[in-house]
Design a protein around this nucleic acid. Sequence first.
DNA 1: ATCATAAAACTAATATAATTAGTTTTTAGG
DNA 2: CCTAAAAACTAATTATATTAGTTTTATGAT
Lengths: 202, 202
Amino acid sequence: MPRQGLNRDAVVRAAANLIEEKGPAAFSMAALAKFLHVRTASLYNHVDSLQDLYTQVGLLAIRQMVDAEEQAISGKYREDALTALAEAYRAFARDHYHLYRMILAAPKQENPVLEEASFAIVRPIHQVLEEFGVRGAQAVHWQRLLRSFMHGFAAHEIAGGFSHVPLGRDESYRIALEWIAAGLRAAAEEGNHACQNNGSYR
Amino acid sequence: MPRQGLNRDAVVRAAANLIEEKGPAAFSMAALAKFLHVRTASLYNHVDSLQDLYTQVGLLAIRQMVDAEEQAISGKYREDALTALAEAYRAFARDHYHLYRMILAAPKQENPVLEEASFAIVRPIHQVLEEFGVRGAQAVHWQRLLRSFMHGFAAHEIAGGFSHVPLGRDESYRIALEWIAAGLRAAAEEGNHACQNNGSYR
DNA sequence: ATCATAAAACTAATATAATTAGTTTTTAGG
DNA sequence: CCTAAAAACTAATTATATTAGTTTTATGAT
């Protein structure tokens, strides 16, 4: 048994690759073990359980996604940053869609690690909103709108839910983002001279 | 063996109930069989496979959701209809969130049945857009925006992704819908006196 | 160099899952 | 009342995750 030199990280990365390549349906401890030229039981030296492995893969996916987002917006501002962010989000979901699913597929109970990591996904979004001058409570509301839209669009695109009509999805995405950008400008404007009615937004 | 009087429909409904109650993790052919006071193998008289069962449960969920949407908007118009539709969508996802997941969890390959049924989910949305006077290509784009937002919001809410900040999610939802309504009014307006530039939207 | 120890692999076994084949029982219609 | 299809059953197969206990390999201290 020539030692394989595995560790937790290598196992998680291999799992992510395998899931991304063949899909989660084809994934199993046995499949991963075969891929790594190791017996199934050996994986438990590095990983607590299949659930644990899934959690780790989810964390990895989140980190990759946040990286992509931050890279996309670096050096860009306002509308450009918004477009770049949204395009990066969509591209990641499209190109790594098995991984993308695992991010939100994690059960909401427990998993404080994943909870915290998914917090990181919001940071680039808030940065863009900040540039638009949208702050405070408004920033929370608009972050939710933007994130919901991006995720929903990606989810439908992945599931093939937009394919009935051949009309360009790129076009749909662009139009939606333009309207959201207009909303951000309006919200920033409103936020500027709104000091007396601080409690009621809009 | 006092015959249980099962049929395809009863099995599917029981599966849906069981999944909704205990979650998909606790679901299995064995669990369903026990619930129905039947041996596991007997289920295969009514259902081809676990996959088949999942597909059927997904179809059932879609039907229930469309019903809820149509009931919500009946007798309402424009902004009222939009609000009612969105609220019904969100409520369904919240109250039946295990079922809601199965709607989009279906693999995009095969499953023409489910593909067709999910088409029905769009109909109520288009009806609302029609009332706003949004038609043609615009209707497709705005339907995608609205549907993406509703799904994304529901998905994040279900996953607990909005809970970090205690700021009201109801408020966020309301604000977003108001902005979308404004967009629909603008799109309808633009659509009315746009006859020469038919090809480029916005 | 050697050797003790912890980690990393292994073998073997258990429990549970989905699924299929083949058999018996029930029930509804002629 | 009897027959044939449907609905239940038993039993077996294959695959899964997981655990216990064992052997091997590196590595770091002597």
